[in-house]
Nucleic acid binder design. Structure first.
Lengths: 352, 352
DNA sequence: TATATTTACGGGTACGTACCCGAAATCAAA
DNA sequence: TTTGATTTCGGGTACGTACCCGTAAATATA
């Protein structure tokens, strides 16, 4: 019932090389103060024994902290969506800080890519060992993570993915499938007119994020041979005035729209518009368990909300970094979150 | 750059309770030798401080080994599929044995549920801390894992899932989707006759496993409105004579079958039959990167093989147990493996 | 050659927990 | 009261690695 003793550690290496443990340690961390000759001898023994350090002991003895950076949008008046991932991040932080992990969070403004760049370069300056980020701005994120890669700093994406970057992992929704689900829900109250709108309220109109969702959305109708016209509405300014203006125009142009699918959490602003303009006949589907959204869900202005467990995204994102950097354990490259459907009826029980 | 000291460990508990570390330790592991009074005092402080043990230090100091059991099919002459998961299991074992994990593997005969039961009860007798199993026989597995749950022994499924059991996680294919992919590949050479066969060569004809795959298979044709007749062929005996007999009869009855989809790795026996009976006109799709299957793939008797990274299943299955039991880190409940498509052209480069 | 400086290395302690061993305190039996 | 058994507890070491500090040896400078 006891551990076997076939494991060779620094002690055995030191014994074989006729040196002290301290010298072996110097070689292992290539610190100075070892002659070339003994260094070579020790390295040979390390290779011969295929020495694998005991990470548990290593972390325990180390006084160094592993500092991680988090780069996510600031909670703004417009949306408090990022409160949830932040909660998960905080929970993970409190769990792993006793193992020498320190988390610093940097916030950017979703309406201003420049703030993303500022914070990103701040992260690059403060030498962090790992980065968790929401790649809300694709090109800016690409630039940033390439710099990370050059510094050999692993990075994790949450909320949305950036394809073909060498990220440690992605934790978030399968965007295409999420759009697909959104489409199915959009047909829920469809009668005869057969027009649905897909609304993108965002500064970044052609983000990979959005394109994936829209593609999934359209695929549903194609796969099911539904002869439905899909109206795409882009709203570049996120304030409620712009939303009202653009939606008024669009609904004027297409007065027979039966359902609106909003591709992100700003569905509440569409709901507000529908409420004011008394268009409760239009079915509304959108994203995320925000207070405003839930309010409109309860008022039956929103029919369905799709949620991707944002708290868990934050939690698992940090834990993924912890697992590689501290525990040395492998991590799945992709963690797709559930695509949860929240309605007026089940919302009270939802675990965000 | 140094660890902060806000962490309260056993030392602090001991100090506050005016006892020694050893006594605190006794309470933590509810060993005997502590009076009720001090036990209560210590427990109060533990609760007050919300003490979380340092798992790294705990594992390092502990002389106890954590023994895990693995229950998978024996590599038989019929199929060497389980060599791959075994390789992954061995790899994981060699990585984690230095942290006090010991793995014992139990093998059962895929043709004999009784051997499963024997091995299962052997596992229940030898008190293991975690179990990794391939639930090839559903009902037998159900019985087994319920016994595990009662003993509070976590268990992990690989290769196929058993729904609604309280498993730590499942690591394997999305069976429905895998059948769906199989269906798509079955249409690859389809001409006009529009008949495909789905062949299940297994003792366990109605396994959850198989039903899921078949459901996915059928869904593809339904989703794409393909007016294709699907012939279901059950072959209960896995020897080549039975396969030949049953297939001969089936092909006689349906002489216009254009494609055959075999729902498991025994596709080579169908390939052998097609070769003998010179029916190279029939498209053949099946599972798993076995030597025999690859040979028939190269002979162009098999068109496609679908693979689910069996080696990784074994590896990740064990690592999942390691992560919960040793590292105390959370584990995703479901790890869907890739549904890889292997052809004659790409097989040489496939990473099983 | 004497002294200062640098290089190379070993001793030893710490990390937080587990657990062995011995000893004091309490209790039971005589 | 004495002896023995039992309960209750503390000291101290070990796990494998990191790293501080001191020192002998090698080298440089006078």
């Amino acid at each position: 019932m006891d551990k076997e003793n076939t494991y060779y550690g620094v002690k055995e290496i030191a014994r074989r090389a006729n040196v002290s443990i301290a010298t072996v340690d110097r070689v292992l961390h290539n610190r100075s103060g070892v002659s070339e000759k003994t260094k070579r001898k020790i390295n040979d023994i390390i290779k011969e024994l295929d020495y694998q350090p005991n990470i548990l002991a290593s972390r325990l003895a180390s006084k160094k902290i592993i500092s991680l950076a988090v780069l996510i949008p600031r909670v703004s008046e417009e949306t408090d969506f990022w409160e949830a991932p932040m909660k998960g991040i905080t929970r993970a932080d409190s769990e792993i800080k006793k193992y020498g992990v320190q988390v610093t969070t940097f916030y950017f403004d979703l309406n201003d890519p420049a703030t993303f760049n500022e914070q990103a370069s701040a992260i690059l300056d403060g030498h962090f060992k790992g980065v968790l980020l929401a790649p809300s701005f694709i090109e800016e994120s690409r630039k940033f993570v390439r710099a990370c890669r050059e510094k050999k700093v692993p990075f994790v994406f949450i909320d949305s993915d950036v394809p073909d970057e060498d990220n440690l992992c992605y934790i978030g929704p399968h965007l295409f499938q999420s759009g697909y689900v959104g489409a199915k829900l959009s047909t829920y109250r469809l009668k005869e007119k057969h027009k649905v709108a897909v609304v993108n309220i965002s500064k970044e109109t052609d983000s990979y994020n959005y394109l994936q969702i829209e593609e999934g959305f359209r695929s549903y109708f194609k796969d099911h041979n539904l002869p439905i016209e899909i109206i795409r509405i882009d709203i570049k300014d996120t304030d409620s005035l712009s939303v009202t203006r653009d939606l008024t125009r669009a609904l004027h142009q297409h007065d027979d729209i039966e359902a609106i699918f909003v591709t992100n959490s700003r569905v509440f602003s569409v709901a507000a518009f529908l409420e004011k303009s008394k268009r409760t006949d239009i079915s509304l589907i959108g994203y995320d368990y925000l207070k405003e959204n839930i309010a409109y869900l309860n008022k039956e202005l929103i029919d369905f909300l799709i949620c991707h467990k944002p708290e868990e995204q934050g939690y698992r994102g940090l834990m993924a970094l912890y697992q590689t950097l501290v525990l040395g354990a492998p991590v799945e490259k992709t963690h797709f979150m559930p695509i949860d459907i929240v309605t007026k009826e089940n919302q009270a029980f939802y675990q965000n």
